[in-house]
Amino acid sequence: MDVLPTQTLPTPIPIPTTLVQSDRCNRRPSRPSGSNPGRKNKKSKNHSHSFNATKDLGRWKPADDLALITGVQQTNDLRMVHRGTKFSCRFTLQEIQQRWYALLYDSAVSRVAVQAMRNLHPELIATIQARTLYSKAEEDLLGTIKSTSQPTLEVFQELLEANAHTFYPARTAKALHSHWQLMKQYHLLPDQTVQSLPRGEHVLSFSDAEDMINDTELMEPKDELVDTELATADRKNKKEIKVLENELGRWQISVGRSTKDHTVDVDLGLEGPAWKVSRRQGTIRLRNNGDFFLSSEGKRPIFVDSRPILAGNKMKLNNNSVIEIAGLRFTFLINQELISVIRQEAVKLNLNP
């Protein structure tokens, strides 16, 4: 496994000789026993190293190790690898540094990682190597192609063959072309310059540009036919609202049996057993919130959805409620559109329900 140049790696910290000598002088002779504690400590250390290596390998996939190694070889910068390499999961910069140092200095971790990378499929290895970061030397060679030109794949193939020792072995002409287009898009080519923003009082702000817009140019031409239809519909709605306002306080109907000196809105004497129906059997009232209530005022009870209403009591009526009076059954239907208008007008007039 290749490693970084020696100048980029941290030098190991030397152990002072005085500390070792003093430790030897103060060390007491161990008691003879059946077991060797030094051997146990050495065995436990080896076990901990292998455990950490296995645990570390569980999160760091072999593909991640290969991407880390190739990225560092190309850029010699762990920060650049952290920003530009896509791993199997998200790693922090500190985790990448720890993994890189473990691959360099921990023999147990390095041995397990190398063996796992050797078992990778060749196609996966080729994919990882094709996505490795570009080095500074590679981008300098790509910068020799002017941004104003329209290079073809043959141009990049010639550049790749002429500088095979500089480009990564997995580079292709198509990959170089794609990376050159990205550099051109973000103005990273040497012959490209980024224009700075103008400075001074003459800079046009968004509010100034908005004030310069002529509102008359944005308005659509008027359609007289549409305006006439809208005005007619508005007058019709206002007329209906006025009628509702006049009738809002007296929306109630009486149910019973009409006689010569007494009339009701709903005469049940024309249907069924008239002698069982009281002259004023009940009253249906509409509240301002759009709810209907039926109050019983006769001698015989009124049944609403099979529930009796005795005299002096009332019950709310719902849409499709079944009302039964003296063996006569009726279905109560509500005009939902009209009720919604009534509720809106009640809110506008601040009427109590």
Rank of each mutant, 00 (worst) to 15 (best):
F303P: 00
I342A: 05
T232F: 08
Y134S: 11
E220A: 13
S178F: 11
E240W: 07
L4F: 08
L310R: 09
D2R: 14
A346F: 02
R24N: 07
L120W: 11
K146N: 08
R118E: 15
P273V: 03
D64Y: 07
S306G: 05
T166S: 01
A274V: 05
E201Q: 12
I325G: 01
E161Y: 08
Y101R: 06
F293G: 04
G256A: 00
G327I: 13
Q336V: 07
K42N: 11
E224P: 11
E95G: 05
G58Y: 10
H47E: 14
V3A: 11
S207R: 13
S35M: 12
D223C: 14
D265C: 07
F332C: 02
K316E: 11
R31Y: 10
V266I: 15
D265V: 09
P29S: 11
T193P: 00
F91K: 10
A231C: 06
L270E: 15
W275F: 13
E220M: 10
V3K: 12
Y134Q: 05
Q115Y: 12
Q129P: 04
P198C: 07
L68C: 01
D23Y: 10
R171Q: 00
S296K: 13
A231I: 02
K146Y: 03
E154I: 09
T193V: 15
I213M: 13
L104V: 11
S50C: 07
P5F: 06
P62Q: 05
Q7A: 13
S254Y: 04
R24Q: 12
E324N: 05
S178P: 01
A231N: 09
S48G: 08
P5R: 11
K314E: 15
Y168V: 02
